[in-house]
Computed example of a mutant assay.
Amino acid sequence: MPLRPLGLGDVLGGAFTVFRRNARVLLLWSFLVTGVVGALAKVVSTLAQGGLQSRMFSSLDSAGSSSDAASIAAGTATAFVLLSVGLPFVAALFRGFLLAPVAVDTGQRVLGRRATFRGIWGLLAGRRWSVVAWVLLQAAAGVLLGGVFLVLFIGFVAGLAGSRASFGWFLLAAVVVALGGGVVSTWLATKFAFTIPTIALEGRGVFSAAAQSWRLTRGAFWRTFGIMLLVTAMFAFAVSIASFPLQVATVFVSGVFDPLGQTSGSSGPGVWSVVVVVLGALLVTAVQCVTDVLSGSVLTLLAIDRRIRTEGLDQRIAAHLDTGQPADPFAPAEALPVRPPQQPWGPQQPWGPQPPQWQQQQWAPPQWGGPR
């Protein structure tokens, strides 16, 4: 990595270089931390959603009254939402744990070293519980934020129902609440994006690392958000391609060709359908493990770039590589003093005759001789 402020090409190229030169160790960390949970979440979600859909249609057929049908539909929809949102949310939390070892390995690659599995675990000594605390704090904040916007949505719906508004107003309320929640969560995620890399590299505590992330993103919010959005879109496209077999398997498991569950709803998914779902989930998980490592490395390099720009981290890294001092170049450091803005040029003085700066002395002939 060049010891200078990093551009987009440097960040992306550096992330792929980090992965290529230590792929075995990073993939092992990714599989142990996120791969197992992600595969289980995908299998359970796919099979459970298919079973819920089949049972809902069969229950609606046997429902005796409209109130029973409404209760069945509401319960099935709630379970479906919990599976569709809850399991991916848990998997996303585990990706937060993966970010710490990826950040440590990326920092070692910046110093020209190759970290081992045990070496990464040792470098995280004293910092693991801070990572755990931050991930749990994120989970609590996510649940709280979701609850707040859910209450707002229920309030909108209750108000519109009291006024007997049309369906369009209900749809507009849902869109407004969803957009508001998305904007707030995206803003917070960007401002605190460097918290775990800061914990892993600098050894700060939870709140100190969160404050450091807030400072590093100051003045660079849109750049950080843009690069994160670009990387997320690229890797989401790769995962969507890999998940195509899983989507095909979901079609067969959910009984789309028999939506009322008359033939396969009672017997459940077949053995081959389960096998295809498991294989598809493993393929998606493998691609997800690679993209998780690359995303974590990109985020770490963005944090290093901000420290280079605001704290002169490149100078400390160069001094460490030359003389060994400081012993830990990633340790917390004071921000560089902000340069005062240059004063604009003042109005030019008009051209005109300049006053003489000296007076011409009158020449006198020298006096020869002197007193005798």
Rank of each mutant, 00 (worst) to 15 (best):
A91F: 07
A281N: 06
S273K: 01
D305A: 02
L3A: 07
V183K: 04
L144G: 13
F252D: 13
V44W: 14
G203I: 08
R4Y: 11
Q325L: 08
R109D: 09
G168V: 04
L87W: 02
P371H: 15
G203H: 04
T78C: 13
R316W: 04
H320L: 04
P269A: 15
G9M: 02
Q367R: 13
G51A: 10
L93I: 01
P326A: 08
Q360Y: 02
A115S: 14
G219C: 07
V251T: 10
L172N: 00
D68Y: 11
G112N: 05
W187S: 08
P2C: 07
L230I: 08
L201M: 11
L294M: 05
F80Q: 13
G96I: 00
V251N: 08
P355C: 09
G182Y: 00
P101R: 04
L99H: 03
V287F: 15
S267D: 09
V338H: 10
F221P: 00
G64R: 14
T190I: 03
G203Q: 05
G126R: 05
R114Q: 07
P347R: 10
V231S: 00
L12I: 08
S54E: 03
F252N: 10
N22E: 15
T300P: 06
F31V: 15
V25F: 03
Q49I: 12
A193D: 11
P344A: 01
V284G: 12
A211C: 06
P347W: 09
G147T: 11
S208F: 01
S58A: 12
Q262I: 06
S243E: 15
T263K: 06
G126F: 06
L12K: 01
S62G: 08
F156S: 12
P350M: 01
L82M: 06
L188C: 02
Q343A: 13
D68G: 13
V151C: 09
D305P: 01
G162Y: 14
R339W: 05
Q138A: 08
V44N: 10
I196H: 00
W345H: 13
V11R: 01
V33D: 07
F330H: 02
W187N: 06
V338I: 12
M1S: 09
Q49R: 11
P259D: 12
Q325M: 05
A15L: 04
S213G: 01
D68C: 10
V132I: 09
F117C: 11
F237G: 15
D292K: 07
W345Y: 12
V175T: 08
F207P: 00
R118L: 09
G226I: 04
V277L: 03
P101G: 06
H320T: 09
G180R: 00
T34G: 11
V110K: 02
R316S: 08
T78F: 15
S59E: 12
T186M: 09
A210W: 02
S273L: 11
F225R: 10
L282K: 14
S295I: 06
V157C: 12
D314S: 07
V239L: 09
S266E: 07
L301N: 01
P340C: 09
A39N: 04
L40Q: 10
A133D: 03
T116G: 13
P356M: 09
T190G: 01
G35C: 14
G75F: 04
V131A: 07
Q288Y: 05
V90I: 04
P2G: 10
R24H: 15
A189W: 04
G268N: 07
L40V: 13
P197W: 01
W363I: 03
S45P: 01
P259E: 12
